[in-house]
Computed example of a mutant assay.
Amino acid sequence: MSGRETETETQRNVLGEALETCSTSPLTGFYRDGCCNTGAGDHGVHTVCAEMTAEFLAFSKYVGNDLSTPRPEFGFAGLKPGDRWCVCAARWYQAYDEGCPAPVFLRATNEATLAIVPLAALKECARDLS
């Protein structure tokens, strides 16, 4: 077992449960394992499982992180509305403050997010609360 597997196998979501998969198509996550796992090398804290909207993609591009333009040299097809993606917690929170947050999936959002984003903000935008 690699160090990364040890690091990610016990990660929890913001509800204190086992972290669920965010997306395998497109394949997301800092480690490209489909989950919003994080570790020492993830300086951007890519821990929020968000459903892309046109508004969020435009905001992200405006503030310097273009997620919609394909980058074939990196094997990145570009995101479109409806895709789920592990986004940086600080960027998601910035979009929230600006009034254009992407919907989130709490069961696939890493608990590490809570060091940056209040649970109440995530719950306001949750798609998976019953």
Rank of each mutant, 00 (worst) to 15 (best):
Gly99Cys: 05
Thr113Gly: 07
Pro26Ile: 06
Arg91Ser: 02
Thr47Ala: 14
Phe105Glu: 15
Thr53Leu: 02
Phe76Val: 13
Val87Pro: 03
Ala126Asp: 00
Val117Cys: 08
Met52Ser: 00
Ala102Glu: 00
Glu55Phe: 10
Asp97Ser: 15
Asp33Gly: 01
Thr109Gly: 02
Pro101Thr: 07
His46Val: 05
Lys61Phe: 04
Met52Gln: 11
Ala77Phe: 03
Ile116Gly: 01
Arg84Ile: 04
Gly34Trp: 13
Gly3Glu: 15
Tyr62Lys: 15
Ala120Ser: 14
Val14Ile: 04
Val104Lys: 03
Leu57Ala: 01
Phe56Glu: 03
Cys49Val: 01
Lys61Val: 03
Leu57Cys: 07
Asp33Phe: 01
Ser60Tyr: 08
Asp42Thr: 09
Ala102Asp: 03
Thr38Pro: 09
Arg71Ile: 10
Ala89Glu: 10
Cys100Lys: 12
Pro26Tyr: 04
Ser2Met: 00
Leu122Asp: 11
Glu17Leu: 11
Thr24Pro: 04
Asp83Gly: 07
Val117His: 08
His46Asn: 15
Gly39Arg: 01
Asp42Arg: 08
Gly82Leu: 02
Asn110Ser: 10
Gln94Phe: 15
Gly39His: 05
Pro72Gln: 11
Ala77Trp: 02
Gly64Gln: 02
Cys88Trp: 01
Thr8Val: 15
Tyr93Ser: 13
Thr113Pro: 04
His46Trp: 15
Leu57Phe: 11
Pro118Phe: 00
Ala115Glu: 14
Ser2Asn: 04
Leu129Asp: 00
Tyr96Asn: 08
Thr24Leu: 15
Arg4Leu: 07
Asp83Val: 04
Glu73Lys: 02
Arg127Leu: 15
Ser2Gly: 02
Lys80Trp: 11
Glu51His: 00
Leu67Trp: 11
Asn13Thr: 06
Asp42Ser: 07
Leu106Met: 07
Glu98Trp: 14
Gln11His: 06
Pro81Gly: 06
His43Ile: 12
Lys123His: 00
Ala77Cys: 05
Leu15Val: 05
Phe59Tyr: 13
Ala54Leu: 07
Pro70Ser: 03
Met1Asp: 12
Gly75Trp: 03
Phe74Trp: 13
Gly29Gln: 00
Gly29Cys: 02
Ala102Tyr: 05
Glu7Phe: 09
Val48Gln: 11
Ala54Asp: 13
Glu7Pro: 09
Asp83Arg: 02
Glu17Gln: 14
Leu15Ile: 11
Cys125Val: 10
Thr21Asn: 08
Gly99Tyr: 01
Tyr62Trp: 15
Leu114Lys: 01
Pro101Lys: 05
Pro81Asn: 06
Arg4Ser: 13
Gly29Ile: 03
Ala126Ser: 05
Pro70Asp: 00
Asn13Tyr: 05
Gly64Ser: 01
Arg91Glu: 08
Trp85Met: 01
Asp42His: 08
Leu67Met: 11
Met1Ile: 09
Arg91Asn: 02
Ala90Tyr: 14
Ala108Gly: 09
Asn37Arg: 12
Arg91Lys: 09
Glu51Pro: 04
Ala108Thr: 06
Gly34Tyr: 11
Thr53Pro: 09
Arg91Thr: 03
Ala112Arg: 13
Val87His: 09
Pro118Asp: 00
Asp83Cys: 04
Thr69Asn: 06
Asn13His: 07
